[in-house]
Design a protein around this nucleic acid. Sequence first.
DNA 1: CATTGATACAAACGACTGTTTTAAACGACC
DNA 2: GGTCGTTTAAAACAGTCGTTTGTATCAATG
Lengths: 208, 208
Amino acid sequence: MNQETKTRILDAAERLFAQDGIFTTSLRAITDAANANLAAVNYHFGSKEALVHAVFGRRLKPLNERRLQMLDAAIAVDPKDLHGILRAFALPMLETAFHPPHEGSPVNIGSLLIRLYTEPAQLVERGFNEQMACTAARFVAAVRAALPHLSEPVLFWRIHFCVGCLAHTMNARLILSALSHGLIDTNSPEQAFEHMLPFLKAGLTAPE
Amino acid sequence: MNQETKTRILDAAERLFAQDGIFTTSLRAITDAANANLAAVNYHFGSKEALVHAVFGRRLKPLNERRLQMLDAAIAVDPKDLHGILRAFALPMLETAFHPPHEGSPVNIGSLLIRLYTEPAQLVERGFNEQMACTAARFVAAVRAALPHLSEPVLFWRIHFCVGCLAHTMNARLILSALSHGLIDTNSPEQAFEHMLPFLKAGLTAPE
DNA sequence: CATTGATACAAACGACTGTTTTAAACGACC
DNA sequence: GGTCGTTTAAAACAGTCGTTTGTATCAATG
């Protein structure tokens, strides 16, 4: 079975979805970029919606697995280690958003994944929100264990804010560059995380 | 000059843009909802892009004026008052996102405005980013004055994170509700702000 | 060699998009 | 009453969308 065209389509779709959005990217643009025929999409995937699911499914699972793996490793050493928890929470995400294309990861997956939260319609929702919610629940539990004095509402609100920081940083790097008049223009996820860590840590541990 | 149809179109477009996004909302859906003729859009506004600009322009200017007015009032009393600065920064925004429809403000403007940051293409960018950037610069200056010990990069990063918290809170209230399994489901901008304030304050004032 | 199954291709489908055109209605003013 | 500019209305425009169709290609299998 020759799956070469199929992965070429996946790669092109991933890149264009991240770059231009899902609904604004046409199948023709995808197949053109993939040097494939228009009908190949419906042949290999069945529909555009199925293609979207395939594009996200290929990346989302390994990413969340890595995050949970880092989380487990961190709390195994020290359940109160907020630094490690936040690192597991943010760094793999930031890496997908900041790293230039490389083998096996041809594009900015971050700006692709972030569309799960920002695309207006419900095309992508089902099935992935579930997986994200599962991962999120693990982080909620970890933060709850690390900061047991936090009330439940405050816990959820603050984790929500953490997600917002992360999402906006992944999504709107250009805005930061514009805001600082070009002063800040980084391609390093580690650098972004180093700035983010004290902010999130202080926010989470703030007095109620 | 009868502008009734024009404002009916603006109201309908505002609501549908906020609800479904800009690119996924067709002129026909707008004119149907506004009980107007399809050609009325191009007659009154010239093009869909011009309509989009009109929809945003009607709301964005008063909103930012109110934010800057609150900011000026706060720093006039105490330039170091982070609470007042953050209140001016966030509360007017949150109000547009949380308040139910009411006279003169028929829909959730927040979920409309947030599309400035999240819509993939560049249709909305020009002209509004400028206005938002101008307002943002004022807040940067205010925070810089309130926290003069912060280095410039850290200042910009942390304000960027504040924007992320605000944007995500405005955009993704449903996610918070899902994350907390329905525990948190508020329609109060004040309540959201009360949770956000200590988080942002602690994040901004964290040691570098 | 003939047949099969998987893949690729060009072409067309109907539905929808934003826009334009043409004509009709309307109240205001001379 | 007639003429004007303003506003609405219906229809058609050319273009793009996702999808489907029928056919060609090609390696593998009998």
